[in-house]
Structure formats: structure tokens, C-alpha cells
Amino acid sequence: MQTLDNFLGRLGRWLAWAAVACLVLMMVEVCLDVAGRFLLSMPMPSTLEIVSEWWMPALIFLPLLNVEWRDENIAVDILHQRLNPRWRAACDAFALLCFGLFLWLIAYAGFEQAMRAARQGEFIVGMIPVITWPPRFFLPVAGCLTGLLCLVRALGAVRVAVTGRGGYLPNTLDSKGSHLG
């Protein structure tokens, strides 16, 4: 279990790096577009389409695995703190299963849509044609892996709830602010 968790952690960091690359590309492309429009009368072609169809889905979906691995998804804790550790683990197991189910549902539906778009060779025509089907795979890939991580951790949480031993939260979570986090 811990091995799988660690492996998903590493994968999540790679995906996060890819998202960082997309963030920087997006910033540079918009700036070049503005500069080109004014200095050279030559805007970057199809910036609007590339930003919305490629960089935005990348920024939003690729980091999913890394965010969940660091246990940074947002939840409301009202009752949670007052529970004893075993009940808390049971609660967490349920929450993790819900999150995993939700991600798998949207990942599966997104996968169907992505396959359909890929078969049709989906594209959009701005100033130049932009292929738009590959970024449709960001959600299915990241969502499916994150769902898997939720399942792994939910199993760990169930064990804690039943036996009162073990752990399921990322013990590697960086308190020192390591940038690889």
C-alpha cells in the first residue's frame, strides 16, 4: 500500500510539474500576444483558443493527484475534531470513497468524451486551426489516478477504524516547505 502511495506521489509531482510548465507557457504566450499586437502588428495566432482549450484544463486537472496526495482538498470540519481517532478514520474512509467515486465518475465520462473527440480529430479554427482533443485527456488521466489514491487511502483508513493501528495520511507531507512537496 505504502509503495503504491509513494508511486502515486511521484506521479503526482510529475503532473504538477507539467502544470507548472503550462502556467508559464500561458503567461508567456499572453504577454507575447500583447507585445506582438502592439509592436509588430503581429499577434500570436489563436492565443484565445490555445489558452482556453489547452492551458486552462492543464492547470486545473493535472495537479489533482498532487493536491490530494498532500491532503489539501478542501473540506469543512465541524464534527470531525470532536471524534475519537477510530471514528475519525471511519469518517475519513467514507469521505475518501466519496471523493474517489466522484472523480471516477467525471473521469470515466471525460474519457468517453475524449475518445470521441480523438476519433473525430476535434479542432477549432481561430486565426490558425488548433487541435483540441488531446487536452480532453487531462481530466480522465489525473482523475482516474487520484481516484485510485483515494481508494488506497480509504483502505488504510478502514484498517485504522477497525484495528486502531496504522496510518493513511501522507507522512511525507512537507512541513519544511520543500518545493518538491
Binding site: 482538498n73 478542501i74 473540506a75 469543512v76 470540519d77 465541524i78 464534527l79 470531525h80 469518517c91 475519513d92 467514507f94 469521505a95 466519496c98 471523493f99 467515486l101 466522484f102 472523480l103
Partner: peptide, 8 residues
Amino acid sequence: ALRVPVAA
């Protein structure tokens, strides 16, 4: 209330 992530 059961601490399910808000998105889920």
C-alpha cells in the same frame, strides 16, 4: 458535516 471534500 461528515467531512466529505466540498467538491465531492
